[in-house]
Design a protein around this nucleic acid. Structure first.
Lengths: 331, 331
DNA sequence: ATAATTGATGTAACGGTTTACATAAATTAA
DNA sequence: TTAATTTATGTAAACCGTTACATCAATTAT
């Protein structure tokens, strides 16, 4: 086994001296230092991180829990996280949970088990008590999806206000029959976006119909296509659609295209997130831009607050969002 | 500190007994077991993974190094990896390198430092000697991007043959002026795809022009758009384009769209990868489908071969690929 | 020349877990 | 009843690195 003892032995010094050289604390005589360094590079020695972290009870590792990486939405957020984390000389381990509680649990245990120093959690599906319990003892930040009943700092946007804005835009464009393609309402964001949708319709006295309110348990193109298929078969066809995710909106646009329909002439479509691909579609997609990078970097900053001053409370934030108007709603 | 000693003390047993209960080895008397379990759940104890892994010199953790998660191409591969890895009762840590050698190095050190049991490496930019050295001592698999001069197992596709197929398709459709939008030729795949492109042109005696051969250091929509802008300004405009990535192809399509041009009528476009978005564009994109899920799951299987039988050689594989013909080339 | 200070290095405990081996108690065999 | 075996539990070393404290040598001060 190649370890610090072996190096010490080869160099004819004690392990303490080797350790001092590795963590260059400057208290080692020059020639001893050189001697040790020579042995280290000759043997190709790397300190074992388990031993080191165990001793230091610190890993300088952050875990980021995402449901999936197939939605580019997360890519930008992770970029924001990475940039801050690296600046602090930490590194990021990204873990995908598929929103499965058991998988989330396994990864969260890594925090309890001291493998990582903290966690940024998007889209938690795990039981709330267990999450709260974890957050009481370790640094945890909720990012994007959150539960405000918990005493865990979160960073997100005001989904209700954002979707209200999106739907109001459709109303301003003259639409009166507006459908929503939503995801699973177990998610807070889905409930909030529906709330904003309903609020806008009520405010303008527009009809609310069950057949215009669709839910999807999966969030992918196919779900968007399926939802659009259903809407095109509705007794009373909507003239505009608000999809709570660009992915769903793009699937919907595709379905229209397959049926020979045009956006916005036949049906206008608004998405949500402003993933890079949203501007690449034809027609380009009107959408709510979340400040993804900013969300990520803020989340990381909040996490470091918790790590560095565990006893001081970290305040939660809702960031601004922006309606990006493109061809899919512009007559 | 809450540790196994504390639990042992509270339960009035030795640490060995607690350890046996945790790893339920069945050699503990029923009532002792219950007593210990009660204490464990009362104190909310979780074994420290650093201590455990240090002792066992095993982490049951796999590191996957990707340049970025913003290209959905990687999402599918990672899915393939995850499914196998979980089946083996391991977990995946995903790390993004931005193809920066220093970042790659930091993560690779985690393997040396025993934090993870192996690595699947896509798109290595790190110095080859260091990678080879790592692979000599730890389980490493090259995935997608690879260097065949190294003695490190790889899984990928035959890029030369695939791009030859793509370009031949364009030729079959009657095109004689065919451009390539490539990425950085420091990458093996980029060199191979160019090779296939040239081979097809040569075989059919078609012209090869410098102004039809474009390179991009970044691989994103903007790069695709920029390349297309250049091609549209060429003295001799191509009638067909082979892009070595769907992302580039989609950017190129967008640029055409902005200029009021249609694919394939004005210029035909072929992409590479068959990311989910590729079928969502309008027109839908003709592309080379890489068996992404399969690549990922194979990579994981190969890694476990290395982990479980370190001394037996693992053979490298090139998987089949398929040309998916869609609207962007179909007159 | 002696005492006091500085500098370089070593010793050993500690962080948390697992497990070979030892021991004690309980059971079975003779 | 005694010896042999089985079962349950405990002791202590091992995994690897860090660091407070101790030690010794060398330098500086008096």
């Amino acid at each position: 086994m190649l370890n610090i003892h072996k190096v010490a032995e080869e160099a004819g010094v004690s392990v303490a001296t080797v350790s001092r050289v590795i963590n260059n604390q400057g208290t080692v005589a020059k020639k001893t230092q050189e001697k040790v360094e020579k042995v280290i590079s000759r043997l190709n020695y790397e300190p074992n991180m388990l031993g080191r972290n165990l001793r230091n009870s610190e890993s300088r590792l952050i875990m980021v829990l995402v449901p999936t990486i197939s939605n580019p939405f997360y890519a930008q957020i992770v970029q924001g996280i990475e940039d801050i984390v690296r600046k602090e000389n930490y590194n990021v381990f990204l873990c995908t949970t598929d929103s499965e509680p058991e998988r989330e649990k396994v990864f969260l245990d890594y925090v309890r088990q001291k493998l990582t120093d903290g966690v940024i959690f998007m889209d938690p599906a795990v039981e709330v008590e267990m999450l709260q319990d974890l957050a009481n003892r370790y640094p945890v930040i909720q990012c994007c999806e959150y539960n405000e009943d918990l005493n865990i700092p979160y960073i997100s946007i005001d989904d209700t206000q954002a979707s209200y804005k999106a739907v109001k835009h459709l109303i301003t464009m003259g639409h009166e029959k507006i459908a929503i393609i939503n995801s699973d309402e177990t998610f807070q964001y889905a409930r909030n976006r529906k709330k904003g949708y309903l609020k806008a319709l009520e405010e303008y006295g527009l009809p609310i119909k069950d057949e215009w309110i669709l839910k999807n348990s999966e969030l992918n193109f196919e779900a968007g296509q399926n939802s659009m298929r259903k809407l095109l078969r509705a007794d009373d066809k909507p003239t505009a659609i608000f999809a709570v995710s660009d992915i769903l909106a793009i699937g919907a646009l595709k379905r229209m295209n397959e049926e020979g329909l045009q956006a916005p002439e036949d049906i206008a479509v608004v998405g949500f997130d402003n993933i890079p691909f949203a501007s690449m579609t034809n027609p380009a997609l009107t959408t709510i831009a979340q400040p993804m990078y900013e969300i990520g970097s803020q989340a990381a900053k909040m996490l470091f607050q918790k790590i560095n001053t565990p006893d001081e409370p970290v305040s939660s934030t809702l960031l601004d969002n922006e309606l990006i108007i493109r061809e899919s709603t512009l007559g």
